[in-house]
Nucleic acid binder design. Structure first.
Length: 129
RNA sequence: UCAGUCGGCCGGACGGCCGCUCCGGCAAGUGCCGAAAGGCCGCCGGGGAGGAAAGUCCGGGCUCCCUUGACAUACGGUGCCGGAUAACGUCCGGCGGGGGCGACCCCAGGGAAAGUGCCACAGAGAACGAACCGCCCUGCUUCGCCUUCUGGCUUCGCAGGGUAAGGGUGAAAAGGUGCGGUAAGAGCGCACCGCGGAUCCGGCAACGGAGCCGGCAUGGUAAACCCCACCGGGAGCAAAACCGAAUAGGGACGGCGUAGCGGGCUGUUCGCGCAAGCGAUAACGCCGCGGGGCGAUGUCAGGCCCGCCGUCCGGGUAGGUUGCUCGAGGCCGUGUGCAAACACGGUCCCAGAGGAAUGGCCGUCACGUAUCAUUCGCGCAAGCGGGUGGUGCCCUACAGAACCCGGCUUACAGGCCGGCUGAUAUC
């Protein structure tokens, strides 16, 4: 799994499918080549000052690390857009949110319709595998 | 002990699991990604946010541009004196003014006799120095009284003059206080204070002190214009250097071909001319007796230009690499200096990311805080202070390096240390 670094890649993914969650928005886009899954992170300035933005990005990155790689579609690009709730939301709950978000845009990949499914509010803490 | 003041320091600790990034060493398929430049992959060891990394307000280094090297002008900045420094608007030590019992704190602190402007309201008057109420004198008139006198005292008013003591206005009223003086007054005279001048003494200087002289003349405002002195070329690491595609476009050479196809422009007639062209012309052809209609925003032939393939050259973009961390560097010691700081010696290498690493999730402890229980001391009591334990909260404030230094400013939970001052108590 690679990181997304070029600005052009971010712009391309931003036009793809979306899945919303209280702590983040997941954007995705299939690629033509057979490269690995790539993922990038975006936290805008309206989410807080620099230490808070750093913390949001680090928690999101840790979520992706903990997630089983199987749940992601092969040769797709993903972008996680952070929200302010990512600072305080329970980590195990966010992990469930992300797992659900990854299953969602697989059905609507081509239409680009924004699937909207908030994660379960009270999630039992699950073992992160 | 309490209150205060100044300065310095810290800004959670330990552990577990899983990671990120850089450096060094070893290993390394000629492996993977990419057209290339270039990048990625293993193991071991080590480093990895701050006192403000922030605001981007000053000063530098460095890079490029321009030449401006100097002077002048414009613009901007600085503004008591001396020192420190690469430099500064910073720092240190003094001076002057103001505040505080004091330690100590604050100061946009050059020039108002170069010039211009402004000084609201109130007030008579606010700057080529002012008489509103007063006070005083003289003349005239008038009321009353005393009287021997052409005299004296007194009341009202008018006119002329003197006056800055008193009242009133104001942020500020023309030196202040006292004594003398006077019709009443006034630096009119004198003493002290203030102000100004030159002299002398101390100090590198800002400035301070002394006696002498001057009778006071220059009100405030320069964070109003201005004057004086000093300083300043511009842009900034997204600077800049190197490598460098795809695609489009530029140039050179070669190949194929000089034919066909596609696109664009030209396209009438007559005369002269070999032609290039020049001149004339709506003037041509057909139908029609004619008016008129059609050919015609047309077409053929011909001419000119562009388009193919390959190699190379040069410029630019995406992208990549460098710049990128050894520095006016940190720590320790010695010396000089009141100090800021400087010199010498020793020692250490201490973040280098680039959609941006330095972390995520937990556990234990400490700290803080809220509440409950219990206990101790003081007290009649209400209550106050302290200890222990449980639980909850915050599980930490302000805040994230972005080329690098020196400063300034601003933000900051909580805590530690030291100097000094005042008050109280005790000896």
């Amino acid at each position: 799994m690679d990181r997304l670094r070029q600005r052009a890649d971010f712009l391309a993914v931003a036009n793809g499918a979306r899945a919303n969650s209280p702590a983040f928005v997941l954007q995705s886009r299939p690629r033509d080549d057979s490269g690995p899954v790539r993922i990038g992170f975006t936290v805008t300035k309206k989410n807080g000052n620099a230490p808070e933005r750093n913390r949001i990005r680090r928690r999101l990155r840790e979520l992706v690390k903990r997630l089983d790689p199987v749940s992601m579609q092969p040769h797709h690009d993903y972008v996680l857009v952070g929200r302010r709730d990512a600072l305080s939301r329970d980590f195990a709950t966010m992990l469930d949110d992300l797992r659900i978000a990854f299953t969602k845009p697989a059905r609507h990949t081509h239409k680009g319709s924004r699937g909207q499914r908030p994660g379960p509010a009270s999630a039992a803490s699950r073992k992160p595998d």
